[in-house]
Amino acid sequence: MSDVVLSISHLTKRFDQQTILEDLSLDVREGEVVVIVGSSGCGKSTLLRCINALEEIQGGEIRLRGEPIRHNSKNLPEMRRKIGMVFQNYELFPHLTVLDNIMLSPVRAQKRSREETRTEALTLLDRVGLKEKAGSYPRQLSGGQKQRVAIVRALIMHPEILLFDEVTAALDPEMVREVLDVIVSLADQGKTMLIVTHEMSFARAVADRIILLEDRRILEENTPEQFFTSPKTEQAEKFLQSFEFKRKKES
């Protein structure tokens, strides 16, 4: 069995008095793609945000390659550089060009050379079909293009793990494909990823493991094949049914 990259143990997350996640444990191994599904508001985004300490946690521990990630620790920026995060609404920096968005953190935070960073940025942009947009500003791009830039911005940091939070939820339907294709190719390259999505056929294709988050905890953990054909829990069945349409036709 390969190494554990991310290890979440007994995580508890509360907002004020409301408990969102309780005693949640999850390991992600190297090269593994774990997809998290669950109804809206069940805490998927919160879980991802806890992992890079954008949220404080009230209990448990999160470790990356054995090193704890703590909200108030001095080395938090270093730890975060090993975790790539892609947000639902891209969150590119509007005052910087595509290239500068991508180069900001490698140059400023990782202190890598401009030359080397620029070369890699252009290579990565080329790989997602956006080399000619290097000098454009985010406002000049479509949603799908912005999201591919955001993925490149995370990739250039060479993170240990990539977190994707419903990265196609804000996109027009015709742009969903171009973004999901990029993520599938990352899976093929063996990247370790934790993906939250509502795209079920994508989840089935990309996942090594599917996790159903419901009721503050992991309700079901399964292979994609079994999850979609014969889920273990009633809740998973109900969840999957919510994606199907039925009509009663009068004869």
Binding site: L54, R80, I83, M85, E91, F93, L104, A109, A154, M157
Partner: peptide
């Protein structure tokens, strides 16, 4: 979320503010 997106990239607080 702009601040968070910069923090998630591992920039230090002062760099988040400055850049």
């Amino acid at each position: 979320i702009q601040r968070e997106s910069a923090e998630a990239l591992g920039l230090r607080p002062i760099q988040v503010f400055r850049f």
